[in-house]
Design a protein around this nucleic acid. Structure first.
Lengths: 209, 209
DNA sequence: GAATCATTCATACGTTCGTATGAAAACGAA
DNA sequence: TTCGTTTTCATACGAACGTATGAATGATTC
């Protein structure tokens, strides 16, 4: 019925990209240890040795997968931060970017926390993004505090509280639905998180939208 | 120098408890797959067969570890919810309970999200706690909305936003310090999260403490 | 068309894993 | 003490893992 390979008509030489796609799906479904090299190469329609040949090791393939997924998001956050808008509006936009990118890459939140949850350090690409976002967003917060629109407080802590919303909400979204019968529409989720973040940071009571 | 076993002077018959303690530490340090039965039994000073004998399987030992860690927290949240205080104060107290319990069980957040991050369902004890907390806390939110102290909005979403704070902040606390040089004092973390939650839910601007 | 390089392939190696097995030891009740 | 039960122990099994190896194949260049 359905072809077991990721790309039935792959042109030669994109074995590498096919591997990344298959690995991304399997890492998200089963976690790092649960996704064997054999399962990945089989799903990609490639030979068992392909991972070693193209990436050197399973670990490096994992890093590549994570980097591929997360890099565009880092860029989008950076772009939003440079907009000529009010600080609170840009922070809402950051929240929206997170949700939007998670929606297009529904498995990204898994990669963000999987290593941390296993007591290890996140992969390099995640660390780099955390660093960049922390700096960018806390800069926006500081601007908002300077112009009086955001209440006082440690900008780094405020940034973490902002990021916690899309990450945690997206992470529990699926289990909430499948295991607890709590079904939340994505746009409600985003709208709520934006309001919550604005209210949590604002120095004045939330104005109606 | 230090004994490799968990309890050098264990009385007979608490092998079971010693296994749970050793397993908890190793699961937290290395994740489920990273903590082998051999490593666990060796750390507990027990025989390799002890896990099968006392728990039936590694999976059931894991469930037992998680249940042991999370059950007291569920009770504490329930107790806080029944206090005769204002809704927002009780919600702050819930946040404090989370942080406090995480502080005494620094590895609990790992267990809360490990399975989710690997694309699986959380262990039964985590699901049960999520259910209970969701119901309890969203009840408090609804009360606060009824008396006008909390702004309108879906109580379930608001609950998730509240819980996101202690969970995410505790989760990233260690990697932030060790890998990114961001060192945050625990009491600052708690105080910030309480303020952020109150501000995010309150129907009036935050009053000075 | 031969030579060079890149890629694919089948297969094998050594390790580690969770669990099973059955004997040995410890324990408690009679 | 003796019997029956519970708990420990050493060891074995089969499976799955990541990676290495070297031959085969394909593509590119001269």
């Amino acid at each position: 019925m359905n072809d077991s390979r990721e790309h039935p008509d792959d042109r030669p030489d994109d074995t590498r990209a096919t591997l990344v796609a298959a690995a991304r799906a399997l890492f998200a479904e089963r976690g790092y240890d649960g996704a064997s090299v054999r399962a990945i190469t089989s799903r990609a329609g490639a030979n068992l040795g392909a991972v070693t040949y193209h990436f050197g090791s399973k670990e490096e393939l994992y890093n590549e997968v994570v980097a591929t997924m997360i890099r565009p998001m880092r860029d989008r956050v950076g772009a939003v931060a440079r907009r000529p808008e009010a600080a609170l509006d840009r922070l809402e936009a950051v929240v929206e970017v997170y949700f939007d990118h998670f929606s297009a890459n529904g498995d990204l939140p898994h990669f963000l926390v999987e290593r941390i949850a296993s007591g290890q350090l996140p992969p390099p690409a995640v660390l780099a993004t955390m660093r960049a976002v922390l700096q960018t967003v806390s800069g926006i917060v500081a601007e908002g505090q300077a112009d009086g629109s955001i209440r006082p407080g440690d900008p780094v802590l405020m940034t973490l509280s902002v990021i916690a919303q899309p990450v945690y909400l997206s992470l529990v979204h699926a289990p909430l639905r499948t295991a607890m019968g709590v079904d939340i529409a994505s746009d409600h989720l985003v709208a709520h998180a934006r309001r919550f973040v604005r209210a949590g940071l604002s120095s004045s009571p939330a104005e109606a939208p």
